[in-house]
Amino acid sequence: MQHNKRRMRKGWVALASAVLVVALATGCTKKEEAAAPTPAPAPAQSATGGNVLVTYKDGGKVTQGEFDTFLNINKFFYPQYAQFASDPSFQQEMMNQYVTFKVLSSRADEKSKAEADKKAKEQMDQINLYFGSQEGGLEKKLKDASLTTADVEQFVKNSMYSIFSMESKVTDQQIKDNYDKKIAQDAHVYDIATVSHILIGTSDPATGKETRSKEDALKRAKEVQDKLNNGGDFVALAKEYSEDPGSKDTGGKYENVEISQWEPSFAKAAAELPLNKVSDPVETAFGYHIMFVHARSSKSFNDVKDGIKAELAEAQLYDFVEKELPGMIQTNNLPKPQPQQPAGGAPASPAPAGEAPKADAPAATPAK
């Protein structure tokens, strides 16, 4: 349960920091049968916005109207969310997200707000550009979603305030300590390489079904190696032999990729092989690779410190959600998720909020 929720919350940060990256949205895998929601107690009334769904410390509240708007914005950017809108587990997660952003945005100092305002403007410019190029434009799409531009602007601004509020608490020493720790654990963690490779696979990447034995794959890989050592063209041979769908049509080349993204054996070879030399077959879980490392370098501390800062801020956000937020909620009138009853009649653990699929792998990543 906690693992699933934590994965889903990664979508919060993705949405807050890169609203337009719709393709990388985290969704939920719906349960086969959703348990019937517990009837909600009669909610309090608010002078504006309808029923009060949630109250929290320091006089905070969330009305039905503002929560509906928040759900509509999420569904606008992530259409797949619509199928879960009536799921009590999903509603609770969305409410946690909304209250989190409300609380953290209210804690942002003026410096954080000024930086966040610049980022929010950039986001809105991207949103206008992206949807403006589509049929009907942004205005029509917002109208169809029961939203206004002001709704989206406020959502983006609150999201940015929340992220920058957490980042402002990360110290330079914490960033440096985290950097040193990662380098100590893996000296190549920030290495970048440009690599060409030809994969002779042992299984179908789509089905996982075995396509050839390891012995046959190794024999074929050595044949490719011999062709290259005898003057064969790498690009042409990659297109003919390689079974990596991510690079086959580009001559097997991945350019300026962080090697930590790759399968461990492939990453190790990319970090250690001599430059500009055809390798012997390199075995990974997917078969044998003939590799050619064109270039290799490492990112400096200055190159990665902003990314580390964002990671540490994200961790603080998770800590807030898991440790502080529950104690702040005073009333919650949303339907409560019900435990599923197994066939034997014994009570089951609460049904998970849904497993979020992994974001699409970067384009410049060999088969993993």
Rank of each mutant, 00 (worst) to 15 (best):
E167S: 08
S168N: 13
S168A: 15
T171E: 05
Q174P: 04
I175K: 12
I175M: 10
I175S: 10
K176E: 14
K176L: 11
N178R: 14
N178D: 11
N178W: 02
Y179T: 09
Y179H: 14
D180T: 08
D180K: 15
K181R: 15
K181F: 09
K182M: 13
I183C: 01
I183F: 02
A184D: 11
Q185C: 00
D186M: 03
H188K: 10
Y190V: 06
Y190M: 08
D191M: 10
I192M: 09
A193Q: 06
V195W: 01
V195E: 09
S196M: 03
S196E: 08
H197G: 15
L199C: 07
I200R: 01
I200N: 07
G201K: 10
G201F: 00
G201W: 01
G201Q: 01
D204A: 03
P205H: 02
P205C: 07
A206D: 10
T207W: 01
T207F: 01
K209V: 12
E210P: 15
E210D: 09
E210I: 09
T211I: 06
T211D: 01
T211A: 01
T211M: 00
R212T: 04
R212A: 08
R212W: 04
D216E: 14
D216A: 14
D216M: 04
A217V: 06
A217E: 04
L218Y: 13
L218H: 14
A221D: 07
E223A: 14
V224Y: 05
V224N: 06
Q225G: 09
D226N: 11
D226C: 00
L228Q: 04
N230L: 02
N230V: 04
G231Q: 08
D233R: 04
D233G: 12
F234V: 09
F234W: 07
V235P: 00
V235F: 15
V235K: 15
A236T: 13
A236W: 00
L237K: 11
L237F: 12
E240N: 02
S242F: 06
E243T: 02
P245G: 11
G246K: 12
S247F: 03
S247L: 01
